[in-house]
Write a protein that binds this DNA or RNA. Structure first.
Lengths: 171, 171
DNA sequence: GATTATAGTTAGCTTAGCTAAGTAGATATT
DNA sequence: AATATCTACTTAGCTAAGCTAACTATAATC
């Protein structure tokens, strides 16, 4: 009973499902009291930090000036701190503070708990199937193929969050 | 080899996979020349329209004044048109124009094609597994349970896009 | 017919996005 | 080692997108 391999139809459904899922979970974020853009940047800092401001801008797919302002806001709220690089004084490293770490994780927990509550309705078999489907998406997003990066790898379109952070800064 | 049913761990991975997937696909949207907020609103109008302005605001989880402005912009670009309801002159119905429909679908196609290219690398078995996982997410987002809506159904947090549109306007 | 409720808009504010231009530090070239 | 170039970030100034409060017009209720 294998369905015919129609990548486009399936891609469409995967895409749509992802959109609807995140739209649903996003409502939890209001409870953090942090704006969506800042929250998203903070999430990278907490889970992948410390990162430089430039790396963070790339990961979030925004310009450097935009990231400067988000970081200024996060710093003012005591959620991150900035630190000059010792060997290269142009570089600014962004670290989460204890408060930033706590608030981000609480928010993340609320989102995930919302989804987890729905997953509790699933049978063990469905859980296993969803797990498998998730693995496949993880493969695609964490190891981007040439196709995903675009065969004509244009400079400005070639960076996804995980990929940018994967190429750590050379010292 | 069924993994233990740990809804939170799985929810975390599903959540993260959805974020990374959409972050990847979102880069295609620049080619539409439409801003992200307008594009997202237009997508609802094209796939679920015609809708009233209020329904659209709820579906997009923004305030009515914000939606008024998005709609003004979309109208100025000839992507949607506004039409007063015949029986209730307070109500404005939002329709896609031919141009809006075309541009939205082209953009959607670019996103989906990007993902489809990655899916082509999968084995038929993996395709079937991903299909199954997607079905499970579709279940969750399209038929929200009491858990997902929040047992303390607060007025302002109780609406997801598909849900809002599901309750069609009474005439 | 007066009041209340609803749908949308207008006004005025903050935040988030951009490009262009500036500053300071690192690197390369004589 | 002086100069030029490149790099990382910030500042300035603009538009778009978000909000609440207040307004307009229409419907519904009493």
């Amino acid at each position: 009973m294998t369905p015919p391999a129609d990548p486009t139809a399936l891609a469409d459904r995967v895409h749509s499902a992802a959109i609807h899922l995140l739209r649903l979970l996003r409502k939890q974020d209001a409870a953090t009291g942090i704006t969506p853009s800042r929250l998203s940047a903070l999430s990278v800092v907490v889970f992948a930090g410390p990162v430089t401001l430039g790396q963070l801008a790339q990961a979030e797919q925004v310009s450097a000036p935009t990231m400067t302002r988000l970081v200024v806001g996060l710093e003012k709220d005591g959620l991150i701190r900035r630190e000059r690089d010792v060997t290269d004084a142009r570089v600014v490293w962004i670290h989460p503070t204890a408060k930033g770490d706590r608030i981000l994780r609480e928010g993340r927990r609320r989102r995930v708990a919302e989804l987890a509550r729905a997953l509790e309705q699933l049978s063990p078999r469905e859980v296993a199937e969803l797990d498998r489907g998730t693995q496949i998406i993880e493969q695609i997003t964490h190891r981007p193929t040439a196709a995903l990066l675009g065969s004509t790898a244009s400079p400005r379109a070639a960076t996804g969050a995980s990929r940018v952070l994967a190429q750590r800064r050379k010292r």
